[in-house]
Design a protein around this nucleic acid. Structure first.
Lengths: 298, 298
DNA sequence: TTCCTTCAATTCAATTTTGAATAGGATACA
DNA sequence: TGTATCCTATTCAAAATTGAATTGAAGGAA
């Protein structure tokens, strides 16, 4: 009879490529995994991985097992969501997955009232450009620039985040302020990566045109902010971030370069979880209150 | 982090109604299950069963978990089938699930050549009127009186099993032989249970009419055979069994009371398993060779 | 009632499983 | 070529898990 735990371990080995890596992930020792793998292989009577000096290499049968092991893990995740959904306790933690522009700083500052209201709740902000999988419980709540497609998620469109053209006062003093967008080609242009632009409501041809004129790019809003602040050039930058930086001046009388809707997303099953519910409602209200800042006309 | 083994245990508890019963099924001790349940409940933070003096009673959350645990078990069964399918070894065991009329005696005798050809294979005959679930690997091969509806199964219609009217020579000498079926009402009539008749190709109205006139019934073909042999009356009985009993005389010149097709069923995935394949092929050939006996005109 | 069986929980000794340390080999890089 | 880093397998003592035996309590049958 197969030990289900061994299948859990097997899955981790398959997904991490080596006993050592899987052991680190699972918080068990590498010898344990080595032995559990041997035990599982004894049970099924076939080798599942060939051990190499660089890690593990899956066999054909292992590959077939993997499909079922993943399937089992989905059920375990569903169970975990079920349990979290039951939790009506206002202490514990809530993990928020969000893009760096929001998560790295801005959101932290805006969460101060929440912290005061719910001192028992640990807030865990996971800044990720690759969206965490809420179904796998990689996060409880997500702020996304796109509508999630998965079922079992509740999603609400909140604010519209506009990007404007910004430069520092020093830069404009030195290089002169462009009077129209036509003059932009005479300046260094600072732009987020295409992967970020792709989630904005921008004509792809416009994205291409903008990309062509970029002098500095990053997927990190912090890096872009630094670039603008260091006077490297004129940047396309989220208005709500620029609003909190006195050094930045908006150009062209509030012209919007591009914009993206911010979606607030959570598990349907987690609605009944008090912590997550509290955070969800707080974020919803808070974002609504800052709609003007996001739009860039605050 | 949830231990997957605990979910396996949880499932067994749910399906067996008590720690003790589940422990017997799983070949572990009852204290172990008691502790594993406590550990799982600690993990999820909620009570899954209320312990009563008569066993376990599921809580609402336990009921929801159960769905996922069953789902996981399906995957484990799929894995087990995968592994068994890989097995090209001509030693080991094959379990055949079949109705009592075939399994209790007749099939055993017909398997002698198979035993001689494959001495390494243990044959395991599981006589069950409630059909074993092949997908759950309760058996490897099944002989059924109906076409299986599940996917992932291969099914082949083999022989047609006819039932005739039979009585012992002694009975006929004492009570006289009826000359037509109209005279049957003057005799005690021996009949299988409706659950067996329901799988035959008989007009339901005819089943009802037959049932009305029954004097002795059983779901056990052995019991029916005894009833006929003891001279209790005239019985509706499978021809291929009667053919091997010299005491029984067929009435009405081979009139068929009712008939049923015999289906040979196995897992699609088990086709590549040498043992199961060998047994499947043997049964198919053997049944074909005995078609006349099943039809009652051998 | 009394007896019998069944249940879950507890105790404690025996077993099993675990991880830290280590060995030994392969690879990448300087 | 040497060094550092990665891997898996092995050893052995410590820790965790297990089962046999037992307790106590409840239901069913006589």
């Amino acid at each position: 009879m197969i030990a289900w735990d061994d299948l859990k371990y097997f899955l981790a080995m398959a997904e991490n490529g080596s006993l050592s890596a899987a052991a680190r992930k699972l918080n068990v020792s590498q010898p344990t995994l080595s032995r559990r793998l041997t035990a599982l292989e004894d049970d099924v009577g076939v080798e599942l991985f060939s051990r190499t000096r660089t890690g593990l290499e899956m066999t054909a049968l292992g590959d077939q097992l993997l499909r079922h092991a993943r399937h089992m893990q989905d059920d375990v995740h569903a169970i975990e969501r079920l349990i979290t959904g039951q939790d009506t306790n206002l202490s514990g933690s809530v993990m928020i997955s969000c893009i760096e522009s929001v998560g790295a700083g801005w959101l932290v500052r805006k969460l101060k009232p929440f912290r005061a209201q719910y001192p028992g709740i640990t807030v865990d902000i996971k800044v990720d450009n690759a969206a965490s999988d809420l179904l796998r419980r990689e996060a409880d709540i997500a702020l996304r620039m796109f509508r999630p497609v998965q079922n079992d998620l509740v999603a609400k469109r909140t604010v519209t985040m506009n990007y404007g053209y910004y430069a520092t006062r020093d830069y404009l003093a030195e290089h002169g302020a462009p009077q129209s967008t036509k003059e932009l080609k005479d300046h260094s242009f600072i732009l987020p990566h295409d992967e970020i632009l792709a989630h904005t409501k921008t004509d792809p041809r416009r994205v291409y045109a903008l990309s062509q004129s970029a002098a500095f790019r990053s997927n990190s809003m912090l890096a872009l902010a630094s670039a603008v602040e260091e006077g490297i050039g004129i940047g396309a930058y989220p208005c709500m971030l620029a609003a909190e930086n006195d050094n930045l001046v908006r150009l062209f009388e509030g012209l919007t370069v591009f914009s993206a809707d911010i979606w607030l997303v959570a598990h349907a099953e987690l609605r009944r979880n008090a912590r997550i519910r509290a955070m969800y409602d707080y974020l919803s209200d808070m974002l609504h209150d800052h709609a003007a800042a996001f739009a860039g006309n605050g």
